[in-house]
């Protein structure tokens, strides 16, 4: 069954949404949309460096994405607004990544596959990595769930309760770097943030509690993966963008549901 590239693509996409649902919910609640973008864009630099130094692409992406996240966190609050800091870093990471990739003469890097993803080319080993990565993120979030949620509601209440909001934020940053690393093959660096934000934003309308919103975001994401793949097959459109377009259609449909 796993020989079929479509089955593999669907399984990889659904596996990814296990992680992007809950993580995307936190990205929405904590207003980290642009932060997610910056981390995802940095992945291109990670890809170029991995090929340059001949190391695993996943390791390179996680390292650069984490470096980016920590740079953002330390730069913001030093006189620059978060918005401007991210504006500088998100685009420069992409630019430097594309420049670095152009130096790789030995190995030809198929840039469009990394920018837009190539879910139909997902192999068995990729499938294993996607699921392991997604389950790791899910486990990390489940472990820190109560503390993360308290810090999201209010840093002050978290500190008064003896928690360390900075450490919880770091857990989220690590989860984001992991998701970027496993998602880049599926939807590509440019559209990872969309898979985080659109399903979670759509789920907000239907959810009564945080756990419900996270689970619904995963469900909506999984539906978008299946619908996007089907559309891609039928209309011969690129798979990654089709998945994001399907997610946006679900968002629009749910927005039409009258508020309870």
């Amino acid at each position: 069954m796993l020989d079929d590239f479509l089955i593999r693509a669907a399984l990889a996409g659904v596996g990814l949404t296990l992680a992007t649902g809950p993580l995307g919910a936190f990205v929405v609640w904590r207003r980290m949309a642009y932060f997610g973008d910056a981390t995802a864009h940095a992945a291109i630099l990670g890809v170029a460096l991995s090929f340059g130094f001949g190391i695993s692409v996943y390791v390179g992406i996680i390292a650069v994405a984490l470096g980016m996240a920590i740079t953002v966190a330390s730069l913001a609050g030093r006189g620059h607004t978060m918005d401007a800091t991210l504006g500088v870093l998100a685009h420069s990471a992409l630019a430097f990544g594309l420049v670095a990739a152009s130096f790789l003469t030995e190995v030809r890097v198929d840039l469009s596959a990394w920018l837009f993803g190539d879910i139909l080319a997902v192999g068995r080993s990729d499938l294993v990595i996607v699921w392991l990565g997604a389950l790791a993120v899910l486990a990390l979030l489940a472990w820190r769930w109560q503390a993360l949620l308290t810090a999201t509601v209010s840093d002050e209440l978290a500190v008064a309760a003896g928690l360390n909001p900075r450490r919880e934020g770091l857990a989220l940053t690590l989860a984001l770097a992991l998701v970027v690393a496993v998602a880049i093959k599926i939807v590509g660096a440019l559209l990872i943030a969309a898979m985080l934000i659109i399903p979670a934003a759509a789920a907000r309308r239907l959810a009564r509690g945080p756990e419900g919103m996270a689970a619904l975001a995963s469900l909506i994401g999984a539906l978008a993966v299946l619908a996007g793949l089907a559309a891609s097959l039928r209309f011969d459109t690129p798979a990654g963008p089709s998945i994001v377009a399907a997610a946006t259609s679900l968002f629009a449909l749910i927005a039409l549901v009258p508020r309870r």
Binding site: R30, Q146, T150, E156, A158, L163, R204, A207, G209
Partner: peptide
């Protein structure tokens, strides 16, 4: 205390933070 409107939270769930 401002709680972001994107976070759906009932009173009971809020009271379960950080301890159930």
């Amino acid at each position: 205390l401002h709680i972001d409107a994107t976070l759906p939270l009932t009173v009971a769930r809020f009271l379960c933070l950080p301890r159930w």
